[in-house]
Simulated scan of single mutants.
Amino acid sequence: MQDVLVWNQDHTRREWKKVPTGRFKFTEEDRMAIVAEYVSGHMPASQIIEKYHLSSRQILFNWMDKYVNEKELVSLQDETNPSDPMAKKSPEDRVKELEAENKKLQKAMELEKLRSKAYDTMIDVAEETFNIPIRKKSGTKQ
């Protein structure tokens, strides 16, 4: 165990807590939630790293690359056989199929929102850092 300064539950102040030393294991959902929290812009990377006890910024950015840019994370392809006619399926099976498809589409939409926010943040940082306009200004002639 090691004493570290961490954010309290409601993120209003920092306090010392005993934290086990060693490596932490994060699930895919945890990693996606951490990336989403960073992309939302409420906390800088240094605070996210401290809050979740990540060993470096690179881990956070690797997760961002994986979960914001990875196409195979959310598969939009339907796993059912397209040649199977709908008439052969019972209403209960059809409802289950539609619920599963709805869940996939919601997950895909969430991922696309996260990706969009990440790209916007990246453009904002690039414009601020390099002092060059990247986004096209409205009302300009083409």
Score class of each variant (00 low, 15 high):
134 I>T: 04
95 V>M: 13
96 K>D: 06
39 V>I: 01
48 I>K: 01
54 L>V: 01
28 E>T: 13
62 N>I: 07
126 A>P: 11
120 D>G: 10
77 Q>N: 14
126 A>S: 14
39 V>E: 00
121 T>R: 10
31 R>V: 10
79 E>N: 15
123 I>N: 02
104 K>R: 15
46 S>N: 07
91 P>Y: 04
113 K>M: 11
128 E>M: 11
54 L>H: 00
33 A>K: 04
96 K>Q: 06
48 I>L: 02
128 E>H: 13
58 Q>I: 15
76 L>N: 07
40 S>Y: 05
59 I>Q: 13
122 M>P: 09
42 H>C: 08
101 E>M: 09
58 Q>M: 14
68 V>E: 00
49 I>L: 07
31 R>C: 10
120 D>S: 14
81 N>H: 07
67 Y>D: 10
94 R>W: 03
44 P>R: 07
51 K>I: 04
115 R>T: 05
51 K>M: 08
37 E>N: 04
131 N>W: 09
56 S>N: 04
69 N>T: 14
74 V>K: 01
72 E>V: 05
37 E>S: 06
126 A>K: 15
72 E>L: 07
130 F>S: 07
44 P>I: 01
27 T>G: 02
56 S>D: 08
61 F>L: 09
85 P>I: 06
95 V>G: 09
86 M>I: 13
87 A>C: 05
96 K>A: 08
29 E>Q: 14
38 Y>V: 00
31 R>K: 14
